[in-house]
Every structure is written in C-alpha cells, then in structure tokens.
Design a protein around this nucleic acid. Structure first.
Lengths: 214, 214
DNA sequence: GTCTATACGTAGATAGAC
DNA sequence: GTCTATCTACGTATAGAC
C-alpha cells in the first residue's frame, strides 16, 4: 500500500479507537513508523487527512446505499441496506462520535457533510416509498418524511450514543444488530398486518445476532 | 454572585457557544476579568469545573423530571415534562454535543453520567406507564422499554444532531419544539383512538411554536 | 519520498507577592 | 481571594539534508 493510503488507514483506526482530538499527527506517524515530516509530505495538515477519510466514507455510502429505483422492494433487501449502513457507520465512527466538534473546525467539511446528509435523507425516503409500493408498510405522504428523518436520526446517532453509554465496552457486531432492531421497532407500527409475522421472524433473527455473536 | 459560581456560569456559557474543546481556562478567566491564577484558586483544574457543571445539570434534571408516582397522568403534564427536559438539554448542550470526547477523558464523570442516564431511563418508563394507566397510550409490557429507550435516545441526541446539521444557525426555541414534536411522533402509533384528536391539537400547537417564535 | 531537527504557538497549571 | 509571572508539555508545521 502507498504511504498516503497507509496514513489514511492508520489515522482512521486510531481516530476510531481513541478519538480524533486525542490523536495527533505525531501519533499517526509514530504508529506507522514514519517521521512527522514524511506525513506532512503527503498531507498539508491534519484537516487534510480528515477530509480524505470523509471522502472515502462518502464514496462507500453512496455505493452501498443507493436504493434501486425499482418501485418495489423485498424485506431481504431492506435488511441488507440496514446491515451495510450500520457497518459503515461503525467503520467511520470517530466522525459521528464528535460531529459538532469536527465540523465546527472545518467549513468545507461541513458542506460536504450536509450534502451527504441530504443524499441520505432522499435515499431513506425513496426506500420507504419502495416499501410502501411493495405493500410492506402503510404510511401517509404526510408522515413519510417524519418517519424517514426519525430513522435517519436513530441510525446516525446510534453509535455515538452507544459509545457514551459504555465507552470502554468495545462496540461489537451485536451492538450494531441492536441498532437494526431499533429501526425495525420504529417501522413496526407502520407494517401491514399480513407482513407483521415476517417482521417478527426477522426481529427474532436479529435478536439472536444481537445477543450471541461476538 | 460568588467568584466560584461566576466561573461555573461563564464556563457553561462559553462551552455552549464555542465548544468545550475550544475554551481554555484562560478564556474563562479573561471573560470574567479575573486572572488565571484566581481561577485555579477556586478549581483544581478544568475537569473540576466540568464536574461542577455536570452536578448542577444532574440536580436540575432530577428536580424537574421526577414523575410523580400517581398512577395517572394528564397530557398537560406530559408536555410540561417534555418542555422542561428539552430546555435543560439546551442549557447544557455543550455536554451532549461532545459526549464521547468529554466522557473519555474523565472516568468519574463517566460514572456520574451513567447514573443520571439510568435515572432518566427509569423516569421515562414510569412516565410511559402513567400514560398507559391514564388511558392515553396502549403499549405492551414487552414494547414499553423499547419505546422508552427510543424516546430517551431521541431526546438526548436531538440537540447535538441539530447542531451538526446547521452549526452556524443559532439553535433557538423553535428547534426545541421540533424536538417535542418528534417525541409526539414516536408516541403517536401508541395513542388510544379516543385521545388521538387531542394529540393532533397538541401537535398543531407545537407546530406553530416550532415555526413562528424566535 | 523520507529523514532529523527545530521553530512556533498555546493550553494547563503553579509559585509567590499582595 | 486575587494578582503577575512563569514553567512545562505538547501539537502543528516547516526547513533542509539525504
């Protein structure tokens, strides 16, 4: 791997583990066994590194969560999306863990973030519409955006919230599945009666993943 | 006011406005027109100041949100609680805006925080039970904790989430009322049919507050 | 591309006079 | 209780050699 990519990779890892504010450029360099000077050859400054990480995240996000425009959607696909998004959030958790702080220091990043959020918002709404077309849920046009925003909020807040509750508990897969369950819980009141049994099975499935697997 | 209290007050204000990481002990002293040395006469260090602020917050929280054990509860009271809690979160928003960072630096504060969260959890559940006893909502024993946790999460994440969406927009009362509306939205699927009209009126009321008042 | 050495600024905290 | 002066540690970033 090229040094530049190794820096991005190490920085992400260290930020995730110890928080962006607690990791200096020197730490990153030391962790890679390179000199600070070398690091600054590849990046203008720390901000620049964070930008590059965010770009990676945004790329992943739009790749793994752009619901097909097909009008209908199956439950499996929904679960696939939920899995993918929670995992992505997990991979870049340092960012969400200190969002206000990180964004307040970088106007440009703020703009990029807002764009990503807007994409996410419209993707979630599209997904909900597909679920409605597919007869999975019933929700009025008026409530749909509210439901979408609520889900989006729970998804993006899930990991920082969990970190705050138990900072020394290493967050693991089961915790992500609990996040998936939380989204299912939000959807449940809107699920069509004939689907509700399937949903219950899904919940049962995820409940097992949330408790057993490490 | 005593110097000690003035320090707590100023620090809270500055932290809220500019973020705890961006405010040094020197900033606080300068803002009060006292010397850094004087500040350190009253507090051992910056952590100590944050602790004192948190103690204040926790005191307010348990004062303004300890649902009476009376089995039934009226809608007005519910709204009173929601108002009070969102306002409290607003007054100490710096804390929630960077929760993982602040807690990761202070083991003791972490423990205090967890205790407060546990109190909050049980208070929310008690409140939901009262609403159920009062015939306002219908929710199974199994779902009640999930609903409670979801509401708690939305309440505690609301302000940091909004700050991230629009950091330079000064967060104002209307935004807090939008938070109240979000909680009502979560409750809505569980509201008893005969109450749903009252809820709609409440929502209409808060919708006006959320848009008009500055 | 990578290193060593270092300059610069600043945050946290203390000493000692008043 | 409050001040001035100051120390230490550290994070960011650059210069210049290899």
């Amino acid at each position: 791997m090229k040094t530049r990519d190794r820096i991005i990779h190490s920085a992400t890892e260290l930020f995730n583990d110890q928080g962006e504010r607690n990791i200096t450029t020197n730490h990153i360099a030391a962790h890679l066994g390179i000199s600070p000077g070398n690091l600054y050859y590849h990046f203008r400054n720390k901000e620049d590194i964070i930008h590059s990480i965010f770009d990676q995240y945004a790329r992943h996000l739009s790749e793994s969560f752009t619901p097909a425009r097909s009008k209908e959607i199956k439950l499996d696909e929904l679960m696939g999306y939920l899995d993918a998004i929670f995992y992505l959030m997990w991979q870049f958790r340092f960012f969400y863990a200190n969002l206000p702080d990180i964004l307040s220091r970088d106007e440009l990043l703020q703009q990029k973030y807002l764009k990503a959020q807007e994409q996410l918002r419209s993707a979630v709404e599209a997904l909900l519409k597909s679920l409605r077309e597919g007869g999975i849920i019933a929700v009025s046009d008026q409530d749909l955006p509210d439901l979408g925003q609520t889900i989006k909020m729970v998804v993006t807040c899930w990991i920082p919230f969990q970190i705050a509750q138990a900072p020394h508990t290493r967050i693991t897969k089961p915790l992500l599945y609990q996040g998936v369950l939380r989204v299912l819980f939000l959807l449940r009141p809107y699920v069509q009666p004939q689907i509700s049994e399937q949903i219950q099975q899904l919940e049962q499935h995820y409940r097992q993943l949330a408790q057993i697997e490490g």
